[in-house]
Amino acid sequence: MNTTPTLTGTTVELRPLRETDAPALIEAAADGELWNLKVTVVPGPAAVAAYIARALEGERAGTVMPFVIVARATGRVVGSTRFWKVDRANRKLEIGHTWLAASAQRSSINTEAKFLLLTYAFETLDCVRVQFTTDELNEKSRAAILRLGAKQEGIVRHERIMPDGRKRNSVRFSIIDDEWPDVREKLEARLKAL
């Protein structure tokens, strides 16, 4: 079983997701009514319990490490992210299920959260590969992943069925261990400039 750590940066803290976080997640998702987005899945009031239960089930199975994203300045939960598809034997995982309240978007929060996750993945878990997957239609997410320094690998057709029934094509990206030192240096420079 994986123990989900607490990762603390300057502006953000990633702490393990728990059942008691449901009200805070609903409040964060209400900031922009994110549950109405068609290119990602963000839990609304009716879905948050199942969202958390599925994450915690994966945590117990050792394939998921779910986090809430907390803005340190206010102590408020502003979103969620997780390591998932954790594969210890092949030293790889995916960073995903990431969403932020509208007021926390376009701030240093996402960059620092990804920096903390990538640092933990490569330097503590000794990963050789970290991947990201997003909806082909989600231009904002695709651009943000590329800004991290990830490389686009391709499009996985009809990779999943979205809640509205749409067959989603997903874009796959990755950062490998050989690229991490350069990616780390560029992210550190970006965070200093924010």
Rank of each mutant, 00 (worst) to 15 (best):
R172H: 03
F67V: 00
N36K: 15
T6Q: 12
V78T: 06
L116H: 03
S103T: 10
G165S: 10
D126H: 13
A55C: 10
T4F: 02
P23V: 05
K38H: 15
C127G: 05
A61G: 15
E139N: 11
V42M: 00
L191C: 02
F67P: 03
S141T: 03
V42L: 14
V41E: 05
G32T: 05
L137N: 14
A47F: 09
K85D: 12
L146G: 04
M162H: 11
T133W: 08
N90P: 07
A46F: 11
S107P: 12
P16A: 04
E33N: 15
G32A: 12
R91W: 09
V78G: 06
H97M: 02
T8E: 07
F83A: 02
F132C: 12
W180C: 00
K167H: 14
P66R: 02
R18Y: 11
T3S: 15
V70L: 02
P16C: 09
K92V: 01
R129C: 01
A55N: 12
F173N: 09
V128F: 07
V156H: 15
A22L: 06
T111P: 10
A30P: 13
D21N: 04
L137K: 12
L146F: 06
F83P: 02
P45G: 13
R88P: 11
T119K: 12
L56H: 08
V171F: 03
A29L: 10
R129Q: 04
L34D: 01
E139I: 08
P66V: 05
A113W: 05
T63V: 13
N138Y: 01
G165T: 01
F115D: 05
F173W: 00
L148K: 04
E13M: 14
E13C: 13
R88W: 04
V48T: 08
Q105F: 06
R72M: 07
I26T: 01
Q105P: 11
V48K: 02
T133Q: 07
D87A: 04
Y120M: 06
